[in-house]
């Protein structure tokens, strides 16, 4: 069986790719994808430790994380839609004013 360290390193790599995306991308859709990468890095950890301790609590919790990620994406896409409607762009740095 694969030791837990390898799963943790995979998770760290995915998390850092997501972090790099958040720090560099300005497109709101790519921003959202980067956040999803970071969330899925956490899911890899949950499932790795589920296997490590022989308990499905981690896998069940990962399912809940996916459901929350879906909720986040639904709201995120809605926000991006409004952003594009108001600013004609999905560049997050362009949205410097908030209006109803």
């Amino acid at each position: 069986m694969v030791p837990a360290q390898w799963y943790l390193m995979l998770s760290a790599a995915i998390f850092c790719i997501g972090l790099f995306g958040i720090l560099t991308r300005r497109n709101a859709l790519l921003f959202l994808m980067s956040v999803e990468l970071m969330l899925n890095a956490a899911n890899v950890n949950f499932i790795a430790f589920s296997l490590q301790w022989g308990n499905v609590t981690g896998q069940t919790f990962a399912l809940f994380t996916m459901a929350l990620a879906a909720a986040e994406v639904a709201i995120g896409i809605g926000i991006i839609l409004v952003l594009y409607r108001n600013f004609r762009d999905t560049d997050v740095t362009k949205a410097t004013t908030m209006r109803w």
Partner: peptide, 10 residues
């Protein structure tokens, strides 16, 4: 870090 051998699910 050191971890014990994975228990798995059987």
């Amino acid at each position: 870090a050191s971890f014990p051998a994975p228990q798995g699910f059987g």
